[in-house]
Deep mutational scan, measured.
Amino acid sequence: HSLRVHINGKDFEVHNADEHVIRALEELIRRGADADELKEFLERWKG
């Protein structure tokens, strides 16, 4: 899957995101994670 996440006016393109990554991202958003947390998660995932 390809996923586009809009954080703090920046678009993050997440390519080849598997279900696990997408679910983790949705969980963060549901918990009310702020932009920094989401960005950190995506950067860690992209490795």
Rank of each mutant, 00 (worst) to 15 (best):
K39C: 07
E13I: 14
E27Q: 10
L3P: 01
N8Y: 06
A33I: 06
L42C: 07
R44M: 15
L38Y: 04
E43W: 04
K46Y: 15
H1N: 12
S2T: 14
N8K: 05
H1P: 09
K46N: 15
E19P: 08
K10D: 05
E40Q: 08
H6I: 12
V5L: 08
K39S: 14
S2Y: 12
S2P: 14
V21K: 04
A17F: 03
I22E: 04
I29A: 04
D34G: 12
S2V: 14
V5R: 00
I22G: 02
A35C: 05
A35G: 08
K10Q: 14
W45H: 10
K46P: 15
R4E: 13
E26S: 08
D11V: 15
L38V: 14
R23I: 10
H6K: 08
V5K: 00
K46A: 15
L42G: 01
F41A: 12
V5A: 03
K10F: 06
I22D: 01
L38S: 00
F12T: 01
A35E: 13
F12L: 04
R30T: 10
D11H: 12
A33K: 06
K39H: 15
A17R: 03
H1D: 11
L25Y: 05
H20W: 09
G9E: 02
E26G: 05
I7E: 00
F12G: 00
H6L: 04
H1L: 07
E19G: 07
V21Q: 06
H1R: 03
K39E: 15
E26T: 13
E26W: 13
L3F: 14
D11F: 12
S2M: 08
I7T: 02
A35H: 13
I7A: 02
E37C: 04
E26M: 13
D36G: 08
A35D: 09
H20F: 13
E13S: 06
G47I: 11
H6A: 05
L42I: 14
W45E: 03
E40Y: 06
E43N: 06
E37S: 08
A17K: 05
G9F: 01
K39R: 12
D34R: 05
R23A: 10
E27H: 07
H15V: 11
G32Q: 07
F12A: 01
V14E: 01
D36K: 08
L42T: 04
E13H: 09
E19C: 09
N8V: 02
H1Q: 13
R31C: 02
L38T: 02
S2R: 04
H20A: 13
K46G: 15
L38P: 00
E13N: 04
E40C: 04
E40G: 10
R31T: 12
E40N: 12
D11Q: 09
G9M: 01
N16V: 08
G32I: 02
I29T: 03
E37N: 05
R31H: 13
V21T: 12
L28P: 00
K39Y: 15
E26P: 00
D36H: 10
E13W: 15
V5N: 00
A33T: 08
E13G: 02
A35M: 13
R4N: 15
R23Q: 10
A24E: 14
F41G: 01
R4V: 15
A33M: 06
E43P: 00
W45Y: 14
L25W: 08
G47V: 11
G32A: 05
D11L: 15
K10C: 03
R4Q: 15
L28D: 00
H15I: 12
F41R: 02
R4S: 15
F41Y: 06
S2K: 05
H1I: 11
I29C: 04
G47K: 03
A24H: 11
L28R: 02
I29Y: 06
H1G: 13
L3D: 06
K39D: 11
V14G: 01
D34P: 07
L38R: 00
N8S: 06
L42E: 02
H6E: 12
E26D: 08
R31K: 14
L42H: 03
D34V: 05
R23M: 11
I29N: 02
R44Q: 15
R30Y: 10
N8L: 06
S2I: 14
L42Y: 14
G47C: 07
G32R: 03
R31E: 13
G9S: 01
V14T: 02
L25E: 00
D36C: 02
E19T: 09
D18T: 10
L25P: 00
L28E: 05
R44C: 11
H20P: 08
D18I: 03
H20M: 10
E26F: 12
K46C: 08
D11W: 14
D36Q: 10
W45C: 03
L38Q: 01
A17Y: 04
K10M: 11
D34I: 05
A35V: 15
L42D: 00
G9R: 00
R44L: 14
H20I: 11
W45N: 05
D36N: 10
N16Y: 08
I7V: 09
L38W: 05
K46I: 15
H20R: 12
L3I: 15
N16D: 12
L25G: 00
F12S: 01
R4I: 15
R4G: 10
V14C: 02
I22K: 06
E37Y: 11
L38G: 00
A17H: 04
A35P: 09
L42Q: 02
I29F: 06
L42W: 11
V21C: 03
E40D: 14
R30Q: 11
A24L: 11
R31N: 13
D11Y: 14
V14W: 04
L28Q: 05
K10E: 14
H6M: 06
D36L: 11
E13P: 03
S2G: 08
G9K: 01
W45D: 06
L42M: 11
D18H: 08
E43C: 03
E26N: 09
E27T: 07
A24Y: 09
E19A: 11
A17L: 09
W45L: 09
E19W: 12
V14M: 06
D18P: 15
R4D: 07
G9T: 00
L38K: 00
N16R: 05
N16L: 06
I29R: 02
D18N: 10
K10S: 07
F41H: 05
A24D: 09
E27C: 05
R23Y: 08
V5E: 01
K46E: 15
E19V: 12
A33D: 02
N16T: 11
E43L: 11
G47E: 15
V14H: 02
L28T: 01
D34T: 13
V21G: 03
L28N: 01
H6F: 06
K10N: 07
W45K: 01
I22N: 02
D11P: 09
K46V: 15
D11I: 15
D11R: 07
E37W: 04
F12M: 03
I7S: 01
